[in-house]
C-alpha cells in the first residue's frame, strides 16, 4: 500500500465514523482495501479520496458502501467436521442444562443459524434453547430472518449436512420457494431472536452458555480482536463455550489463559 493510499483510506474511514458512527478503523486492512477497491470500481471514480464526498453527501451511496464493506459470505454447515466435533464434544455438556442461551455473533445472512437450529433439533435440545443471532448489517439480518436461500446451493449444503453428522435428510428442513429458492422451515426460527448488534461498538450479551463467532475475527485487527474476545468472555456463564472459525485462534490473544481448548483443531474453547 502506498503512503498516499494509506492516508486516503484513513481519511475515508474517519469520515464514515464521524458522519455515520460505523467504525471500520480497526478492521484488518488487506481485506478492507479490496472492498474499498470494489466500491471505487462500482462508483466509477478513480481514487479512494473521490469516494469521500460521495459518502458524506449522499446517504444512499453510503448505504451501498456499507453493504460492500460487510459482504457476508457464509454457508450451511460450513466446515462440516466442526459440526461433527461439536456434536461429540459440546452437546453432552449442553444436555445437562435445563435451558440454553446461545449468542450467534456476526450471523450475517443466517445460514449457520439455521444449521445450528437443525443440529439442536436433532439432538433434542432445540425446545429449551434461545438463540440470539446478531449482526450490524441490516440487509443481511433481514435475509437471515426470512430464511430464503438459493436453490443452486442446496446440493452443496446437503452434502455438508451429511458430512456434519446429520441424522435425517436435509430436505426435511426446507420447502421450495420461488423457482430458484428454498424457504427454511419456520419452526427452525421459533426460538431465534434476530437483533442488530455491532461487535465494534456495542456491549455485553449476558449469561450465554455458548457463543458462536466464526470467521468474523479474521476481519479485525489485533486490538479489535481483543476487545471482542473480552466481550465474549464477559458474556459467557462460567464454563461456557466459545466456537471460532477453523483459522481463528485464542493463541496470542489477551484472553488466551481464560479459556481451555476443548477441540484445538476445530477451535472449540471453554471458559475456565
Amino acid at each position: 500500500m502506498t503512503k498516499t493510499e494509506e492516508i486516503e483510506i484513513n481519511l475515508l474511514l474517519d469520515a464514515i465514523y464521524r458522519k455515520y458512527g460505523y467504525d471500520f478503523r480497526n478492521y484488518a486492512r488487506a481485506s478492507l482495501k479490496r472492498r474499498i477497491q470494489n466500491c471505487i470500481l462500482r462508483a466509477e471514480v478513480n481514487s479512494v479520496s473521490a469516494l469521500i464526498p460521495l459518502i458524506l453527501h449522499d446517504k444512499d451511496f453510503f448505504s451501498e458502501v456499507l453493504v460492500q464493506f460487510s459482504v457476508p459470505v457464509t454457508e450451511m454447515f460450513r466446515d462440516p467436521i466442526f459440526y461433527h466435533a461439536f456434536r461429540l464434544q459440546v452437546i453432552p455438556y449442553l444436555q445437562t442444562y435445563p435451558f440454553i442461551k446461545i449468542w450467534h455473533a456476526g450471523c450475517a445472512t443466517g445460514e449457520e443459524v439455521y444449521s445450528f437450529a437443525i443440529m439442536l433439533k436433532e439432538e433434542g435440545l432445540y425446545d429449551r434453547t434461545t438463540i440470539f443471532a446478531t449482526d450490524f448489517n441490516e440487509e443481511a439480518l433481514n435475509t437471515a430472518k426470512e430464511g430464503i436461500y438459493r436453490l443452486a446451493n442446496v446440493k452443496y449444503y446437503t452434502n455438508n449436512y451429511q458430512k456434519a453428522g446429520g441424522k435425517s435428510t436435509f430436505s426435511d428442513y426446507y420447502y421450495a420457494g420461488g423457482y430458484d429458492s428454498v424457504i427454511m422451515d419456520a419452526s427452525l426460527k421459533k426460538n431465534v431472536t434476530f437483533a442488530h448488534h455491532n461487535l465494534v461498538s456495542d456491549g455485553v450479551f449476558g449469561e450465554m452458555h455458548l457463543i458462536l463467532c466464526r470467521n468474523v475475527l479474521i476481519y479485525f485487527d489485533k486490538q479489535l480482536q481483543n476487545r471482542v474476545l473480552n466481550l465474549f468472555r464477559n458474556s459467557l456463564i462460567r464454563k461456557g463455550f466459545l466456537c471460532l472459525g477453523t483459522c481463528e485462534s485464542l493463541q496470542f490473544s489477551s484472553v488466551e489463559n481464560a479459556f481451555e481448548e476443548i477441540e484445538p483443531e476445530y477451535k472449540i474453547y471453554r471458559l475456565s
Binding site: A28, R29, A30, R78, C247
Partner: peptide
C-alpha cells in the same frame, strides 16, 4: 493458503485470511 479461505498479505508482512466471495 488454507482450504476455503483467501490468503492476503498485510502491509506489516503478516498473513491475513478472508472468507470473501
Amino acid at each position: 493458503a488454507p482450504a476455503n479461505y483467501h490468503a492476503l498479505i498485510e502491509s506489516d508482512k503478516t498473513f491475513a485470511l478472508s472468507v470473501d466471495e
